[in-house]
Design a protein around this nucleic acid. Structure first.
Lengths: 106, 106
DNA sequence: TATTATCGTTCACCAATTGAACGCAGCATA
DNA sequence: TATGCTGCGTTCAATTGGTGAACGATAATA
């Protein structure tokens, strides 16, 4: 399934590196090739990216995954939501760490 | 599967509340009853806890899940490892937040 | 005794994920 | 030209992980 997390991560990777293979993307995000393929299809389906045929200078022949205007919008929105989420996680983590420190003392 | 995270969380709950039902444990850890049952079995298998028959004052008839000496040791070790892990996560999170802030600016 | 409530256990079912296998395209070498 | 190699996207059978309804057992209660 395509969670917010992977939607964000994939859009981010593609934005800064549109010519990237699905295999490479899988490595970077530490997920399987199948999942990458599935997520990309979903993103195309939603109109957030489009895949253009593309011949690399080397022996590659693949796609260029470009963010559509809608994709760019979505990515901004996701980034903001992500920041908020991470701030909450940060706060929770500090409490957890404090609790662990207390526990280690015992 | 029994991850470090759940090994830690379960040992912690059991230590401070040995008479607890699997259902209650499932609620607290927000996992299914089946998973709790599976994890408890695994912990018993590893000799980290033992289940003693136990008659509650109320109408309950269940087990008392007691940490073995080995279980207590393991829990201390897990706690320390967990603290270390959380400190790393904390650091990573701060970087991520900083990065997100930069990104939001753009 | 019959009923109710809670216990641990089980397991068929579902959803998510994996990665080997495939066909295709481009390049390099014989 | 033909052959082999590499990397591409795509597919899908197989595995894994998680779920919770259902079950039998036990103890309190009516």
């Amino acid at each position: 399934m395509l969670t917010d997390e992977y939607r964000y991560k994939i859009l981010k990777e593609l934005q800064q590196d549109p010519d990237i293979s699905q295999r490479e993307l899988a490595k970077r995000l530490d997920i399987s090739l199948g999942k990458v393929n599935f997520c990309l299809k979903a993103l195309i389906e939603k109109g957030l990216i489009k895949a253009e045929n593309f011949k690399n200078s080397t022996n590659k022949m693949g796609y260029l995954y470009l963010l559509t205007p809608k994709g760019i919008e979505e990515k901004v929105s996701l980034t903001q939501r992500f920041l908020q989420r991470k701030l909450k996680e940060h706060e929770a983590l500090e409490k957890e760490i404090e609790q662990l420190r207390q526990e280690v003392k015992t």
